[in-house]
Structure formats: C-alpha cells, structure tokens
Design a protein around this nucleic acid. Structure first.
Lengths: 134, 134
DNA sequence: ATTAATGCAAACACTTTGCAATGGA
DNA sequence: TCCATTGCAAAGTGTTTGCATTAAT
C-alpha cells in the first residue's frame, strides 16, 4: 500500500486517488477530466486540489504537461519519451510509441541549446471519421 | 495598395493593419501582442477585433494557430510546412525551416487518418542562457 | 508539534459572444 | 443599400491564489 512512498510528497487520500487514476492512464486527461472522474468517490474534492497536485507531480517528474490541445492543458503520466497523435475534431489524443531521432545542425538552432523535441501528429480518429458528415 | 484584394474578406483599416503587422513576422505573436503593437497607431482598435480577424484569417488559411505555448494561442503567418523551437524560459519561438518526413506504419496510427505533423523542439535561447543564474 | 495540503472563494488570464452603430462592397 | 465588421461590455473557460482549517509526517 505504500506504493508511492518514495514520491517525496505527503500522501493524502486525494493525491492517492489522483495517482491511482493516472496510473497507466492513456487518455491524456485535463484537470477537469480528473476532477470529474474522482468527484464520484471524493465528493468534497476541490478542483484546486487537482491543479495543485498536478503541479506537484509535474515538479517531481511524475507527470508531463501537454500543450497539444489548444484549449486546455492535458496531462500524461507516461514520462518516457514518446509522441502524440491528436484528432482535429474531438481532440482525442493517442500515444505514438515510436520515437524519432531528429538532429538539428548548429545553424538551424537559432543559437538555442536544444534539449529535446515532441512531435504532434494530427488527423481524424476512427469514430470521427465514421460519424455522419454534415 | 490592393495587395490583399483577393483575400475574400472586407478590407477594413484594422484588418489591413493586422495583415501588415503579420506580413513576414516571425515572432509568433499572441492576440494580445498584436493588439498592443497596433494600439499605438489604432488607439480605438478592440482586442475582440484582433481575435475576430485572426479567426477569419485562420479560416482563409492565411495564418496558423499554434498551441506550442501552454499559456496562450500564438499565431504564425507562415503557412508553409515548418517546425518550431521554443525557449522553455521566455517562451520565445523560433522557426525551424528544416522539415522531416516522418512516416507511421498502419499499426502505429491507432486507426487515425494522419494528415500531418508538427515538431516542437524545446530548449533555452541565447539570452536566457546568458542571463544571470539565480 | 510542525508543516504541508485541503477546500472554498475570489481573482486572474485568455478568449468568445451579443448587440447597436459603423462603414466597406 | 446591404451586410459584414467594429467596439464595447459582458460572459465564458481554464487556471491560480489567499487563507483559515485540517491532517500527514
């Protein structure tokens, strides 16, 4: 039960619930998504707690914040390098486990220290494709 | 002077100013950035007009909306395929003109129709690097 | 006992919208 | 003239923060 004992944060029931919800979750939920999912079992949980916890988890490197969805931040508990595929219609995000080794020449870097990269593929998911066209 | 005559939108002074500001602009400005820059010469211009115009330009394919900055939408008048490099500290965005031909196998696409991709490189820009470290 | 985390509400930042007045086409 | 666009204000989202209370260590 002390599965998260070395997390470096106080383990409150709320955090435990958030961690359990995120574990293995590939839906790339927003803070609101997490809040709604947990509100059923934690009716008193505050949305602010979800935001605060996500911030802490980000600081501990247990969660990645994605800016792939233009309307809200989405979170990914998979902190290993990988890429994403987003549906332009419904904003569903799928993981792309394939990685790419992209090199930039010095002259292409605009004098930045380049630390990494992230690829967003975009397209249409199967359910949006098969949905009746207006 | 009818440089934008075939744009398919009514050419108001406000829109002309926005188009002129964006032309060749590589700063990837937010709506607020554009509004501030033009307010000097157009003191009565409304921020809503900037948003409305950007929406129209997006619809006409004259501007791309970027979700590279987690805090706000940024806009790019360069609609040719290219990639971006963002400074993790100051959020400055530079263009990467190099493109990459990234292929996904059918099994990697989670049953999406993949239409394209965009690469975000991230790192530290030269001015942030040389800034005094706290 | 300490100190961090919670929940609430208020504040904040960004973006969108309703609508009367305006002005391009 | 006609209809799209403007400017303003209000409203709508998503996110952050202040603070007294609570609870993990």
């Amino acid at each position: 039960m002390t599965k998260y004992k070395d997390i470096g944060l106080k383990l409150t029931p709320q955090r435990l619930a958030i961690l359990d919800f995120l574990e293995g979750n590939t839906s790339h939920p927003s803070a609101e998504d997490i809040y709604k999912a947990l509100s059923e079992n934690f009716p008193t949980m505050s949305l602010a707690t979800v935001y605060n916890t996500l911030e802490s988890l980000k600081g501990k490197g247990r969660v990645i914040e994605l800016s792939i969805d233009p309307n809200k931040k989405r979170f990914d508990p998979n902190t290993l390098p990988h890429n994403h595929l987003i549906c332009l219609k419904c904003k569903r995000v799928a993981d792309i486990h394939k990685t790419f080794d992209l090199k930039l020449a010095g002259s292409e870097k605009s004098d930045f220290d380049v630390l990494g990269h992230h690829i967003e593929f975009y397209g249409i998911c199967s359910s949006c494709r098969s949905a009746a066209k207006p």
